[in-house]
């Protein structure tokens, strides 16, 4: 592998980490900050990707298209559309039991998957949509995709900064309070349903943005890339492993888990005999699942836990056990 190849590989790798980082940040708004359970991440991701793909590609026979709009428009509409769908789901389920939201998100992700596969006039079915323009394509020559990485990085920084600002604002304070004791927040005069709705819509819109970034990164989208279990699950593991509630933890989780995921793929591709490749993929998925359960059992707060208060009693107990360990 020469230097150019290595550089291209690193750029490719970091771009994907960035996209997954945006997804993990989106989930962190919903789960980490507010405690909303979304297992339809793949659905919102797909909406963003397909919206941008359809709006920015050139005309092609067989399905809707030919708008040839700029990438920024595609991303924006994707964000708005994901947010709108989240708004509808949220309005129906957010004032009910918390797990109803989870079930509804599966439902919407399933329906989106079916639409992607079957509505050929819209999505070109299983063949997918190709020829999605790269960012600033045609402006200059970019064989390594470094422009793409810069766009992803910019999006990541903007999302991160916006969320950190929100977390430190009174809005973030109400969110943390809701996660702790919703009933008391209601008694403090807050419309908690509105707050949770806001968080759900915001998180889903961020996932839509990630989808758009993904579409323009690969230049091609197909239903296979948005398998509900695959995407949704990896993001969950990233957030839990990194430390839910903490935006930096979400990013760290995206980096670590994607390194493990892509690294093991590289290893199996290099060393496993071809006839075992599909099996190797299931083994990797199995191991990720196992990793999640182990984290939940042994370190539920993740690598970078959200800073939380410890009661004095716990603190004392900890100090005492430290002392007795020392002796």
């Amino acid at each position: 592998m020469d230097l150019f190849e290595l550089f291209t590989f690193v750029v490719f790798f970091l771009s994907l980490v960035g996209i997954y980082g945006v997804l993990a940040l989106g989930l962190n708004v919903q789960w980490g900050l507010t405690g909303l359970f979304n297992i339809g991440i793949a659905g919102f991701f797909a909406i963003g990707a397909y919206t941008s793909a359809i709006l920015t590609t050139a005309d092609s026979p067989g399905y809707v298209g030919g708008f040839g709009l700029p990438m920024a428009v595609g991303l924006l509409v994707g964000i708005l559309l994901s947010g709108t769908i989240a708004l509808l789901i949220g309005l129906i389920t957010l004032n009910l039991r918390e797990d109803y939201l989870a079930i509804a998100t599966i439902g919407i992700a399933e329906i989106i998957r079916l639409v992607l596969k079957n509505e050929e006039w819209l999505t070109n079915g299983v063949r997918g949509i190709a020829g999605i323009p790269r960012p600033f394509a045609g402006w200059f020559d970019d064989p390594t995709g470094v422009t793409n990485l810069l766009v992803v990085a910019l999006a990541l920084v903007v999302v991160y900064a916006a969320l950190e600002r929100g977390r430190q604002s009174p809005w973030g304070r109400v969110m943390r309070a809701i996660r702790e004791r919703e009933i008391a927040v209601m008694a403090a005069g807050k419309n908690t349903v509105r707050f949770r709705l806001e968080s759900f819509v915001l998180g889903s819109a961020i996932m839509g943005l990630a989808g758009g970034l993904y579409a323009h990164f690969f230049g091609f989208v197909s239903p296979e890339a948005f398998d509900p279990m695959y995407t949704t699950f990896l993001i969950w593991v990233m957030l839990i492993a990194g430390g839910s509630g903490n935006n930096r933890g979400a990013l760290l989780g995206a980096l670590v888990i994607w390194t493990i995921w892509a690294g093991t793929e590289y290893l199996t591709n290099a060393f496993a005999p071809p006839e075992y490749l599909t099996r190797a993929a299931t083994v990797r998925m199995f191991l990720v699942g196992l990793l999640l359960e182990i984290i939940l059992l042994t370190r539920p707060q993740g690598l970078l836990p959200e800073s939380q208060f410890v009661t004095r009693r716990e603190e004392r107990r900890r100090r005492r056990s430290d002392i007795s360990d020392g002796k």
């Binding site: 929100g166 430190q168 009174p170 809005w171 927040v185 005069g189 806001e198 915001l202």
Partner: peptide
């Protein structure tokens, strides 16, 4: 946390 009707309680105005 308590006083209501503040602009800071919308994430958009925090931006």
């Amino acid at each position: 946390l308590v006083p209501a009707g503040r602009s800071g309680e919308s994430i958009v105005s925090s931006w």
